[in-house]
């Protein structure tokens, strides 16, 4: 819990009303984003994203599994988020569990779409090895190392970066086993397939403080929020998912307004993120 005095609260609220926040940003400006990829060598793909004092790591691990019998032509993706107590002492023990579950559910909604797999940021059918028998299970793990607000956006960005860093081993299936229940497979440890991550959306969280809303809120600013809307938007400008948090009600017209603002902000964020990811990957390839 953030302990703020009455004066500090007024300062934050007043600053937001005047479009000049405590760290000198405007209402719709993000903190600088730093992306590092390939930080976890034992994962198939990983990335670390820092926005101010917020620091998150996302990793992607792929395992061979069986597809869901109702969707034989699709792979499976699951997202787990863990809040490390290093981020805040309140996450100690089971303290971080509630927030972790909330974040994983929101990410699931924003990145993976509905149960049918429609609207997912990742092409799930590209994960199938043998239809109905073998597919890749992607385990996406997020870890909050340090928390200074706006965790959802940072995690979304980290997952996007980790996915573009992910290489799935090429699998060849034995030619001699038609109609076999468990076909023999050979997992290559030299050849990897890259994902097409251009469809993965970014998440923009608009936090409403007083009459105005801001992007990329810090912990102090988040403590003053009445409600927050997280919108995930892809390259085409389509909304892929939406979550509203916080107790206070919001006028429907304001929500629509927020969505159009988020769409505008997401374009800049996507461009910035893409160039950061490309730069990080270039550094990786050099070393």
């Amino acid at each position: 819990m953030v302990g703020l005095s009455l004066g500090e609260k007024h300062f934050i609220q007043g600053g937001i009303a005047q479009d000049l926040r405590c760290d000198g940003r405007k209402r719709l400006t993000y903190r600088p984003i730093y992306v590092e990829t390939g930080v976890i060598p034992q994962a198939n793909g990983s990335a670390r994203v820092r926005m101010g004092a917020t620091d998150v790591i996302a990793s992607v691990k792929a395992e061979l599994g069986k597809p869901n019998p109702f969707q034989p032509d699709k792979g499976k993706v699951s997202i787990f988020v863990d809040c490390s107590p290093t981020a805040a002492p309140t996450f100690e023990g089971r303290g971080g569990e509630e927030l972790s579950t909330e974040l994983s559910a929101a990410l699931h909604r924003c990145l993976l779409g509905g149960k049918s797999g429609a609207g997912a940021g990742i092409d799930l059918s590209s994960l199938v090895v043998v239809e109905g028998k073998i597919c890749w299970d992607l385990y996406i793990d997020g870890l909050v190392v340090s928390s200074d607000g706006n965790l959802l956006d940072a995690l979304g960005a980290a997952i996007k970066a980790a996915l573009s860093n992910t290489g799935i081993p090429r699998v060849s299936v034995a030619a001699s086993a038609p109609g076999d229940d468990e076909p023999e497979v050979d997992i290559s440890d030299e050849e990897f397939l890259q994902f097409d991550t251009s469809g993965v959306p970014v998440i923009v969280t608009l936090t409403k403080v007083g009459k105005h809303y801001i992007v990329d809120a810090t912990t102090e600013e988040e403590s003053q929020m009445s409600s927050a809307v997280s919108i995930s938007i892809n390259r085409q400008g389509h909304i892929c998912g939406l979550t509203k948090r916080g107790g206070a009600g919001v006028d429907p017209s304001i929500i629509l307004d927020m969505i159009s603002v988020a769409k505008h902000v997401s374009e800049q964020l996507l461009n910035q993120l893409d160039s950061e990811i490309a730069a990080a990957e270039a550094v990786n390839e050099e070393s």
Binding site: I40, Q42, A43, S46, I57, S59, K61, E63, F80, D82, S84, P85, Y139, D141, L143
Partner: peptide, 11 residues
């Protein structure tokens, strides 16, 4: 002490 999900070879 806590271990990240991705810290070991197998998840």
């Amino acid at each position: 002490y806590s271990m990240a999900n991705f810290s070991t070879g197998d998840r």
